[in-house]
Amino acid sequence: MSLIYKIALSMIQNVGHVTAKHLLTHFITPEAVFKADKKALMQVPGVGLITAEHILGKNALLKAKEQLKFIEKYQVKVLFYTDDDYPSRLRNCDDAPILLYYRGTANLNHPRIISIVGTRMATSYGKMLCKQLAEVLAPYDVLIVSGLAYGIDICAHQESLAQGIPTVGVLAHGLDRMYPQVHGPAAQKMVLNGGLLTEFPPYTNPDKENFPKRNRIIAGISDVTIVVEAASKGGALITADLANSYHRDVYAFPGRTTDIYSEGCNFLIKTNRAGLISHAKDLPYFLGWEEYKAVVPTELPADLSDIEVQILKVLKVSEMELDALTHQIGLPQSKLLLHLLTLEIEGLLTSLPGKRYRLN
Rank of each mutant, 00 (worst) to 15 (best):
residue 42 M to T: 15
residue 313 K to E: 09
residue 72 E to V: 13
residue 286 F to G: 09
residue 86 Y to C: 01
residue 224 V to I: 08
residue 165 I to C: 02
residue 292 Y to N: 08
residue 98 I to Q: 08
residue 283 L to C: 08
residue 311 I to L: 05
residue 21 K to G: 13
residue 26 H to T: 14
residue 262 S to H: 04
residue 352 L to G: 09
residue 143 L to I: 10
residue 85 D to F: 12
residue 134 A to R: 07
residue 204 T to K: 00
residue 49 L to S: 13
residue 159 E to C: 12
residue 104 G to M: 04
residue 257 T to Y: 06
residue 347 G to H: 04
residue 160 S to V: 02
residue 82 T to A: 11
residue 232 S to F: 12
residue 349 L to Y: 04
residue 357 Y to T: 08
residue 59 N to Q: 15
residue 226 I to M: 00
residue 118 G to D: 02
residue 123 T to P: 00
residue 199 E to K: 02
residue 205 N to Y: 15
residue 13 Q to H: 15
residue 20 A to F: 04
residue 216 R to K: 11
residue 359 L to Q: 00
residue 136 V to F: 06
residue 94 D to K: 15
residue 173 H to R: 12
residue 54 H to V: 09
residue 67 Q to A: 13
residue 3 L to E: 11
residue 234 G to Y: 11
residue 122 A to M: 04
residue 278 S to Q: 14
residue 44 V to A: 10
residue 157 H to L: 06
residue 24 L to G: 09
residue 277 I to Y: 00
residue 344 E to P: 05
residue 60 A to F: 04
residue 343 L to A: 04
residue 298 T to N: 11
residue 141 D to N: 14
residue 13 Q to R: 15
residue 12 I to W: 02
residue 235 G to Q: 04
residue 117 V to Y: 03
residue 37 D to S: 14
residue 23 L to G: 01
residue 334 S to F: 14
residue 304 L to M: 02
residue 126 G to D: 09
residue 195 G to D: 05
residue 142 V to R: 03
residue 70 F to E: 00
residue 45 P to F: 14
residue 351 S to R: 13
residue 28 I to E: 15
residue 167 T to W: 03
residue 123 T to A: 07
residue 64 A to S: 06
residue 18 V to R: 15
residue 215 N to K: 07
residue 269 I to D: 03
residue 276 L to M: 05
residue 54 H to Q: 12
residue 132 Q to I: 05
residue 353 P to I: 07
residue 334 S to Y: 09
residue 276 L to S: 08
residue 178 M to H: 10
residue 100 L to I: 07
residue 131 K to L: 14
residue 254 P to T: 00
residue 94 D to A: 15
residue 298 T to K: 13
residue 109 N to W: 00
residue 12 I to M: 09
residue 147 G to Y: 02
residue 80 F to W: 10
residue 49 L to A: 14
residue 181 Q to T: 14
residue 313 K to D: 03
residue 197 L to I: 03
residue 297 P to L: 03
residue 155 C to I: 12
residue 315 L to C: 00
residue 137 L to K: 07
residue 82 T to R: 05
residue 41 L to G: 06
residue 306 D to C: 13
residue 242 L to D: 03
residue 203 Y to S: 15
residue 192 L to R: 12
residue 225 T to K: 01
residue 246 Y to R: 02
residue 136 V to M: 10
residue 129 L to M: 10
